[in-house]
């Protein structure tokens, strides 16, 4: 069997085996669903609640993607500013790090009070969590220019703009892509954390709210169903960014 198929089917087989074992244990020991729902209970809950869950998914996904977009735009912008001069980097970088090391969960209540629109508040929280890898990776990437190529550009008296466009940005691309991949995961984490803290119901209720609600109602299968959707979203984001990365960097890899 080709290696590609094995790397696809082997983890799948482990997953199926795990689910079967889980189902079997729940069945044999008659474990009640409110303690530990069997996979079949979760699937059942997932299908019977598919409408509210999809609605929640839509909300969470909106916050996640918006936060990712803002992170990319601002993160890249900040990295460009920082790389202009060592002095700028040295004076501003500590604050970027400060922002990173402050747990955003602790800031979230403040942000939710300060920012009046709930959706905006959620996006701000998620952005604060997701932006750091973009800044640091883009910055490292912009600085990781091949010294030989840098000398070549200098020798040919290339302008700053040409050096940025034709050397620094393409050089930074691989690191940026790695940052994007990490950030996409963090944006989802940020969205879910922000939803937990905000605890918003109503129209903009996300998957985190679904989990909270299901918890209050002791509807454990529904809790798992929401969790399952979050995991699936994370996986989809990971695969999407990983495909984008491979596509963008396709030519640089030896095939």
């Amino acid at each position: 069997m080709p290696a590609r198929l094995i790397s696809l089917f082997a983890p799948l087989a482990v997953g199926v085996l795990f689910l079967l074992l889980w189902q079997g244990i729940c069945y044999i020991w008659h474990i009640p669903p409110y303690l530990m729902p069997a996979p079949s209970d979760i699937a059942h809950s997932l299908f019977s609640n598919i409408n509210p869950l999809c609605h929640a998914l839509y909300s969470t996904l909106t916050v996640t993607l918006a936060a990712l977009l803002v992170s990319v735009v601002f993160g890249v912008l900040v990295a460009f500013v920082l790389v202009q001069h060592p002095l700028i980097e040295r004076s501003l970088m500590p604050y970027v790090v400060l922002m990173q090391v402050t747990p955003v969960v602790a800031l979230a209540p403040l942000i939710i009070i300060l920012v009046k629109t709930t959706l905006l508040a959620l996006i701000v929280c998620a952005t604060l969590i997701a932006i750091f890898p973009i800044i640091s990776n883009t910055l490292q990437g912009l600085k990781s220019v091949d010294p030989g190529l840098a000398a070549f550009f200098k020798m040919h008296k290339a302008s700053r703009l040409k050096t940025l466009l034709r050397l620094q940005i393409p050089s930074a691309l691989p690191m940026f892509m790695a940052g994007l991949q990490i950030s996409s995961g963090l944006a989802l984490v940020g969205a879910v954390v922000a939803e937990f803290v905000a605890g918003t119901g109503g129209n903009s209720a996300g998957l985190a709210y679904e989990i909270l609600q299901a918890g209050f109602q002791m509807d454990i299968p529904r809790m798992f169903a929401a969790l399952f959707m979050i995991t699936l979203t994370g996986l989809a984001l990971y695969m999407a960014t990983s495909s984008i990365r491979k596509l963008v960097l396709y030519n640089r890899i030896q095939h």
């Binding site: 091949d146 030989g148 000398a151 070549f152 020798m155 050397l167 393409p170």
Partner: peptide
Amino acid sequence: RLSFVFQEPTLMPWS
């Protein structure tokens, strides 16, 4: 005109 060939090829991998 002056040209320099470095010890390494130093090509742009993206081009």
